[in-house]
């Protein structure tokens, strides 16, 4: 598969931004500057980037507690995301959502979600809006292997199937539901289960940007054409713990060490485009430097930005009451 240069550059930039962002969040969390819990997306960058690159602002995604990558890939402003993670008043959610609830209605980002399995029915509703307004929009829900066992996901699959909604079930199998591996928690197979709901369901290597790009492209096209939902299971190991600070006693040292060699979506992307001569190392290095400098600047801004005022506690419960 050969992709246009602008797609390659865009995809690489999105992946690098996610990697830099979450690696910086990891270090900041260790340093104790970030409030609350954070869940790192590192290792899964190709999934969010390869999927969201097919979507417009008028398409919708539902996300998860591990949502930083989805937000960045869907086009949320990195500075506004950082302000939110630092719970500052100018954050995307005025500082009251935090890492697990980043949302941006203008970008079609219907929220990271701290309830595992809650987003798919909501995304199905967004797909219902697209069908009702007949605007050729699509909705996508990211679903972890842990969430794949929730009843809500099966209800969402069934409703999307019978109503033939423009919906993409974007599974991310990262190997673990919190501290429990798929070999224990998963009965059967994620793509196989989704396929049983009378929709195309494909399993792809989630560390391969090209594989994700191709599979999601077909699913989005099918949705826009009014042909109904699709499911994709992208397999991409989680590099870090369930939450930052998780000592990962359940994973062997060998498994963790191997990840950087065998499951680095950025490395794989670089090797491939360099081998094919599609992009030069210098242009990717330039993106790396730009992304890093941008995040440096925006973290500094977020740390010193004003906190929400005391009265914010009482605001935005209702539109009118």
């Amino acid at each position: 598969m050969t992709l246009p240069r602008e797609i390659l550059l865009d995809g690489y930039r999105r992946m690098r931004a996610i990697r830099e962002f979450d690696d910086r969040m990891r270090r900041e969390f260790e340093a104790g500057t970030v409030p609350g819990f954070i869940h790192l997306y590192i290792g899964q960058e190709a999934v969010a980037a390869g999927a969201c690159i097919h979507l417009n602002d008028s398409d919708y995604i539902g996300s998860t507690h591990r949502g930083h990558g989805h937000c960045i890939a869907k086009g949320c402003d990195i500075g506004d995301m950082l302000l939110e993670i630092y719970c500052k008043q100018d954050g995307l959610c005025k500082g009251k959502g935090g890492s697990m609830h980043i949302a941006d209605m203008e970008k079609g980002m219907l929220g990271a979600n701290a309830i595992v399995g809650a987003a798919p029915p909501i995304a199905v509703g967004a797909a219902l809006t697209a069908r009702t307004l007949d605007n050729k929009g699509v909705a996508m829900s990211f679903i972890g292997d842990g969430a794949s066992n929730q009843g809500t996901v099966f209800e969402a699959l069934n409703l999307a199937s019978i109503l033939k909604l423009p919906m993409i079930f974007m599974y991310e199998n990262n190997g673990y539901a919190e501290f429990t591996g798929t070999s224990y928690h998963l009965g059967g197979d994620i793509a196989g289960r989704a396929g049983a709901f009378d929709m195309p369901a494909e399993k792809v290597d989630g560390t391969d940007f090209f594989a994700v790009y191709e599979a999601v492209g077909k699913a989005v096209e099918r949705g826009r054409a009014g042909e109904g939902p699709s499911a994709i299971e992208a397999i991409a190991p989680r590099w870090f713990g369930h939450y930052e600070g998780d000592p990962q006693a359940y994973r062997s040292k060998e498994e963790l060490a191997d990840l950087r060699n065998t499951s680095d979506p950025l490395l794989r992307f670089r090797e491939r485009v360099l081998a094919d001569g599609q992009l030069g190392a210098d242009e990717m290095d330039a993106i790396d430097a730009e992304v890093r400098a941008d995040i440096d600047d925006k973290v500094a801004v977020a740390k010193t930005a004003p906190k929400p005022p005391a009265e914010a506690l009482y605001e935005d419960v209702y539109i009118s009451y």
Binding site: Y60, L110, I122, A126, T129, N158, L159
Partner: peptide, 26 residues
């Protein structure tokens, strides 16, 4: 039938889909 929609017996999906539809303009 596009505006009066029969659903399966699937309360989480009914209410969840209504939530998502409301968030996105219906």
């Amino acid at each position: 039938l596009r505006r009066v929609i029969d659903t399966p017996i699937t309360e989480s999906a009914i209410i969840g889909a209504a939530a998502g539809a409301a968030l996105t303009g219906l």
